[in-house]
C-alpha cells in the first residue's frame, strides 16, 4: 500500500486536530466541573438534572412560603399572648370589683379601665401581619377584619384560615371569627361587665352576681384565646418539621443534579493526563516522521 505524501499529511493533521479537540473537551470539563454541558453529552442525565433543578427551585419557593407562614404564626402567637395578658388584667379588675367596701365611683372607675382593655383587645384583633394582611383575617379580608359599630363588634373576614403552599398547606392567618367572636364574643363580655360595673346603686348580691358571671365568661374567652394560641404554636412546630423536610428535598435535589451532570474529578484528571500524553506522543512522532524523506539522503 502506497502512503501518498499529501494524504499522509492531511490525515495526520486531521488526527492531531481530533486529539486537540478531545484535550480541549477534557479541559472544559475540568474547568467547568460539568460532565454534561449540553444535552447530547448524556441526554438521560441532562433530563435528570433538569428535573432535579426544578425540584430545587421549587423547594426554595416553598421555603419562602413556609417563612411567610412562620412569620404570621409567630406574630399571631405573640398577639394572643398580649391578649391573654389583657384578659388577665380584666380578670384582676373584676375580682377587685367584688370588694364590698367599693362604692359606685370605684366600680365605675374599674369599668372604665375594662373598657380601655377592651379597646386594646380590639386593636390586637385587628393587628396586621406587616405584609398587608391581618393576623386574624380568616379566609381573606380587604380591610381590618373587626369593626366597632355602635358598641357592637362585627367581623368582616370570612371564617376559616388562609393557607400558603409550602410543600404542604401552612396557615397564614387565624380564624378571627372563631377566636374573638364565636358563641361568646370577647368584646360583648367586656362591654357587658363594664356597663354593669358602671350602673350605679346596685346591691351587693347584684355586684357579686356580675363579678361571678363576668369571671366565668372571661375565663371562657381566655380559654378560647389560649386554645388558638396553642394552634399557632402547633403550626410553628409543624413549620419546623416541614422546614427540615424541605432541606432534605433540597439536599437530595442538589445531590441528584450533581450526580447527573457533575464531573468525577479523579476520572476527568486521569482522562486529561492520558489525552495529554497521547497528544504529546502524536506531536513528537509527527515531527520525527515528517523529517524522514529520501530527499534528505540524496545530497
Amino acid at each position: 500500500m502506497r502512503i501518498t505524501t499529501a494524504n499522509a499529511y492531511r490525515s495526520t493533521i486531521d488526527s492531531l486536530q481530533q486529539r486537540q479537540q478531545q484535550l480541549q473537551q477534557s479541559q472544559d470539563r475540568l474547568t467547568s466541573g460539568k460532565r454534561v454541558a449540553r444535552a447530547s453529552d448524556d441526554p438521560a442525565a441532562a433530563a435528570r438534572a433538569e428535573r432535579a433543578l426544578a425540584a430545587q427551585s421549587r423547594a426554595v419557593a416553598d421555603q419562602r412560603g413556609l417563612q411567610a407562614s412562620r412569620n404570621a404564626m409567630q406574630q399571631a402567637e405573640s398577639a394572643l399572648g398580649d391578649a391573654g395578658e389583657a384578659m388577665q388584667q380584666v380578670r384582676e379588675l373584676l375580682v377587685a370589683a367584688g370588694n364590698p367596701t367599693y362604692g359606685d365611683a370605684e366600680r365605675a372607675n374599674l369599668g372604665d379601665r375594662i373598657r380601655g382593655l377592651r379597646d386594646t383587645l380590639l386593636a390586637i384583633a385587628n393587628r396586621g401581619d406587616g405584609a398587608g394582611g391581618w393576623l386574624f383575617g380568616g379566609q381573606g379580608a380587604t380591610q381590618p377584619p373587626f369593626a366597632d359599630s355602635g358598641g357592637n363588634v362585627g367581623c368582616t373576614a370570612l371564617a376559616g384560615q388562609t393557607q400558603v403552599q409550602a410543600s404542604e398547606p401552612m396557615p397564614l392567618t387565624l380564624d378571627g371569627q372563631a377566636t374573638w367572636l364565636g358563641a361568646l364574643s370577647a368584646f360583648s363580655v367586656l362591654d357587658r361587665v363594664a356597663s354593669d360595673l358602671q350602673t350605679p346603686n346596685r346591691s351587693g348580691p347584684q355586684v357579686a352576681q356580675t363579678v361571678a358571671d363576668g369571671l366565668r365568661d372571661v375565663d371562657a374567652v381566655m380559654g378560647r384565646l389560649q386554645w388558638q394560641r396553642a394552634r399557632a404554636g402547633e403550626s410553628l412546630n409543624r413549620a419546623d418539621s416541614v422546614e427540615s423536610r424541605l432541606a432534605d428535598v433540597t439536599l437530595h435535589a442538589q445531590t441528584e443534579r450533581s450526580l447527573a451532570e457533575d464531573v468525577d474529578m479523579v476520572q476527568a484528571l486521569s482522562d486529561f493526563k492520558a489525552q495529554q500524553t497521547g497528544y504529546e506522543a502524536a506531536l513528537s512522532s509527527y515531527a520525527t516522521v515528517q523529517r524522514m524523506s529520501l530527499f534528505q539522503y540524496l545530497k
Partner: peptide
Amino acid sequence: GGEQGVGHAAGEFLNAMVDLSA
C-alpha cells in the same frame, strides 16, 4: 438545560405564585 432554559423560567413563574399566595 439549567437556569438558562425555558423549562426553568416556566417553573420560576409558577414558583412566584407561592409568594403571591403568601
